[in-house]
Amino acid sequence: MAAPIYDKSYGKAKIATHEFMEYESEKLNKLIKKLKQDGNDQIAIDIGCGTGRHSFVMARHFKTVFAYDFSPNMIDEANRIRRDREIQNICFFVNDFEYEKLIDEQQFYGKCDLVVASFGMGSFVEDSNSMLRRFYDWLKPGGYLFISFYNANSITLNVTPTWRDSALVAQIDKDNNSLEVNLTPKTRFNIFCKLFDTGIEGPINRIFNVDSISTYPMIMALLPNNLLENEFAHAAFVVADKTLAENKAGQNGYYVIVTAHKPPQATSGYSNVERILQDLNAEYEVLEHQPVLSMEDVKREVGPLAKCIIKTLLIRHKDTEEFVAVLLQSEKRLDMNRVADLLGVNRYHIHFAREKEILQLNLKREFQNETGESL
């Protein structure tokens, strides 16, 4: 039952954790002010909102805030605070983001100015690719993603301090993909934790334009908590860690914060198809189904009709930057050597077009992996 004591306990006693929360809030507030100044202040989403720490800040700047957490106790506490403050423009919901369709999701699909998944939330979702694609689909073109993770390159994973007085509330167990959270001496729990590394950074870069990646804190994460209780030491190490946070050559802080935006020219394939059907006065029916991230998923959802499905793969020439579209039966794999022969080019001069390259063509969005399988 962490919710009633969460705001009072988390990050209050452990100074490195507290400083990360402050640092993250500073970066998010700067982004919110930028969006406000640019007139992008209609809809914001807070995933893993807890008791609403960021949601209440966002509510002062956005017309509507949708906030979700899988914990009923956290949402109860957030709603209690909302009622006490008489705030009308936040909708708090109990939802498990990874395994459920969100309540009111259709209201903000493709319309969001900002999606926030803070305080390491990005590490608590096992399927990172699915998470990022959902965020992408919620955002309007030019909308921003603000997300944080626990860092696989944290210096704390390579150094073992001799003291037990950690300045961090949560301790990473890299071998077991978990995080031990010590909220109070009597309130401890373990949760799944997927660390940020190139395996996550790559997919972010493929579909978003990344504005910044920073890690924080590095030095304070190594120090005993009682040392940081000294006012002079505390101030000095905050300055040092903030300097290191933006240093791209040494991304070794405990947490990672990524700020990125959806390419402004991005379009929705679904919207394009719907518009064409309406222009033709065609009769059609929309069938709801679970997200499909591979051809195997499509076959499972669609059934026997899958044999009729043709997938479109885009090939790009590295030197000329020209694109070639290849249409292939869904169950077949593409032979890149054969494509190179047909095009009369060297095999190593062509590759499957990346998502970001496809989006720049202003076409219907098709994801594919390096085997040529449409996603």
Rank of each mutant, 00 (worst) to 15 (best):
M1L: 06
G11M: 08
K12D: 08
A13S: 14
A13G: 04
K14E: 05
A16P: 00
A16W: 02
A16S: 12
H18Y: 06
Y23E: 08
L28V: 12
L31S: 09
K33D: 13
L35A: 12
K36N: 14
D38F: 07
D38Q: 15
G39D: 11
A44E: 02
G52F: 04
F56K: 08
V57M: 15
V57G: 01
V65C: 03
F66D: 02
Y68T: 05
P72Y: 11
I75A: 06
D76L: 13
N79S: 09
R85S: 10
E86C: 05
E86T: 04
V94Y: 05
V94W: 06
N95K: 05
F97S: 02
E98R: 07
Y99H: 15
K101S: 11
L102N: 08
I103C: 04
I103Y: 06
Q106S: 12
Q107E: 13
V116P: 00
V116A: 07
A117W: 07
G120W: 02
G122H: 11
V125C: 08
M131Y: 11
D137S: 15
L139D: 03
P141F: 09
P141N: 08
G143E: 08
Y150Q: 07
N151V: 02
N153E: 10
T156W: 00
A170K: 03
I172S: 00
D175I: 01
S178H: 06
S178L: 01
L179M: 12
E180R: 10
V181D: 01
V181M: 10
V181K: 01
T187K: 13
N190G: 00
I191K: 08
C193W: 00
F196A: 01
F196P: 06
D211S: 11
S212D: 11
S214N: 02
S214F: 00
Y216W: 09
Y216Q: 06
I219D: 05
N225R: 04
N226M: 05
E229R: 15
E231Y: 09
A235C: 04
F237K: 04
A240D: 02
D241Y: 07
D241G: 04
L244C: 10
A245K: 13
A249N: 14
G250F: 15
Q251E: 06
Q251V: 01
V258E: 06
H261L: 02
G269S: 07
Y270K: 13
N272R: 11
D279T: 09
D279I: 04
A282K: 10
A282H: 04
L287D: 03
H289W: 03
Q290P: 03
P291K: 07
V292G: 07
E296C: 04
D297V: 10
V302H: 06
G303K: 07
G303S: 03
L305W: 12
A306C: 12
K307E: 15
I315W: 03
E322F: 09
F323C: 12
A325E: 15
L327P: 00
K332F: 10
R333V: 06
A340K: 14
L343E: 03
Y348Q: 13
E355Y: 11
I358A: 02
L359T: 14
E366Y: 12
N369S: 06
G372F: 05
